[in-house]
Amino acid sequence: MRLQFRPTQVFDETKHVVDMIAKKYLEKATGDLYHLVPIEVTADGNCLYHSIVLLMNNPAVTTSELRVRTIIELVTNENYYENMYSKYVGPVNIAIKAICKNYTFSELYEIAALCNILQCNIRSVCPKIDFQQYMAIWDNVFTPVSPIIANCNIVIMWSHALNEKDAREANNGTWSPNHFVPLISSGIRNDSNNGNQSTSLAVTPEKRAFKNNTVTQIRMPEFPSSPSRRLRSEVNIGNNTAQSISSDSIPKEKNDKEERRQIQLEKKRDRSRSSRMNETEEQRQIRLQKLKE
Rank of each mutant, 00 (worst) to 15 (best):
R230W: 10
V141Y: 05
C100H: 09
M20C: 14
N240H: 07
W158D: 03
V37Y: 04
T30M: 13
L231M: 13
V141P: 05
K24F: 10
P7Q: 02
W158H: 13
Y88K: 06
F223M: 11
G187L: 05
E107D: 13
R284S: 10
S51L: 02
F180Q: 00
N213E: 15
G238Y: 02
S200W: 10
T241E: 00
M220W: 10
Q133W: 12
C126E: 11
V17Q: 15
I237S: 11
D270W: 13
I111T: 02
R260V: 10
H35D: 14
R276S: 14
P38F: 03
N236F: 10
T216A: 13
I237L: 15
H16L: 00
N77P: 04
A209H: 07
N77Q: 08
E27C: 07
R273T: 12
L291Y: 14
A167F: 04
D248R: 04
N153G: 06
D12S: 12
F223L: 12
Q243R: 14
I122V: 06
W175D: 08
L231P: 05
I245A: 01
I39W: 00
S233N: 06
Q289V: 11
P7N: 01
E234D: 13
K97I: 05
T280C: 03
N83C: 08
I156F: 02
W158E: 05
S176K: 08
K87I: 11
T70W: 06
N83I: 07
R6C: 13
N163M: 04
F223N: 07
R6T: 15
V41T: 10
P205H: 00
E164S: 08
P7V: 03
I154C: 04
P205T: 01
R208W: 13
L54K: 05
N151D: 15
T42G: 07
Y103A: 06
P182T: 11
Q9R: 15
S198L: 13
G90M: 05
A136E: 12
S192Y: 09
N190C: 11
N236A: 15
K252T: 03
D139W: 02
D139A: 01
T174L: 05
F210W: 09
Y109S: 06
D44L: 02
E234F: 06
Y103P: 04
N255D: 12
